[in-house]
């Protein structure tokens, strides 16, 4: 697997090679099993690590200072030890519940925010959604990312984003968002 190429593709929004990283899954699962976990917990942990890895690459938080396998293992170890700590602190063996709480976006209010913002985003054009998501989720920097976002200059990307952001902002209000808080 060409790690550099995979990361470059990911940074350009192309996830077509991510599935290849499942080749590291058995290593993680074995490690979890050796550390008092089950196979299922190992698989769940690997998926969580992969999620964190992809998100960090896209948002520019991962710089390929270490091999991907090392990075994934690092995330897994941190999360696993944290869960073991949490379990001890809460005198609970129910790891599944902890995972579910994390996956469920921490409660009904945040889910409402998600639905609300989703509806707002659907009111934008596809190209606007792409720009806003690139900026807010992937931390796009116009000077660096304008080409991959399909613009001829950072200025045109910035201007278009400004139009899109105004549209998004114009369709909501402080009171509506406060009600979801």
């Amino acid at each position: 697997m060409n790690e550099k190429k995979l990361i470059e593709k990911l940074q350009n929004g192309d996830e077509s090679d991510v599935y290849k990283l499942y080749t590291y899954r058995p290593i993680i699962v074995k490690w979890v099993q050796k550390n008092n976990g089950t196979e299922e917990e190992g698989q769940d942990l690997f998926q969580e690590a992969l999620f964190v890895f992809v998100k960090n690459v896209k948002s520019g938080k991962y710089h390929h200072d270490s091999k991907i396998s090392t990075y994934l293992m690092g995330i897994c170890k941190n999360q696993w030890y944290k869960k073991l700590r949490d379990n001890r602190e809460h005198h609970s063996d129910n790891l599944q519940d902890n995972e579910k709480i994390e996956e469920n976006d921490d409660g009904p209010n945040e889910l409402s925010l998600k639905s609300y913002v989703k509806a707002l985003m659907e009111g934008l054009s596809e190209s606007c959604r792409k720009l806003v998501t690139a900026r807010f989720y992937e931390n796009a920097i116009w000077e660096k990312d304008y080409l991959r976002l399909g613009y001829t200059s950072s200025q045109s990307a910035r201007q278009q984003f400004s139009v899109c952001l105004s549209k998004l902002r114009g369709n909501t209000s402080y009171d509506e968002l406060l009600a979801l808080d």
């Binding site: 992969l50 999620f51 976006d105 913002v117 968002l177």
Partner: peptide, 25 residues
């Protein structure tokens, strides 16, 4: 506050989308 909430909402949407894609991979 408004922009913070919009960013949080988009992060939640994209996190959920990414998690689903991870399962598909």
């Amino acid at each position: 506050f408004i922009l913070k909430k919009l960013r949080e909402g988009i992060e939640q949407i994209e996190d959920a989308n990414l998690r689903e894609r991870i399962v598909q991979y």
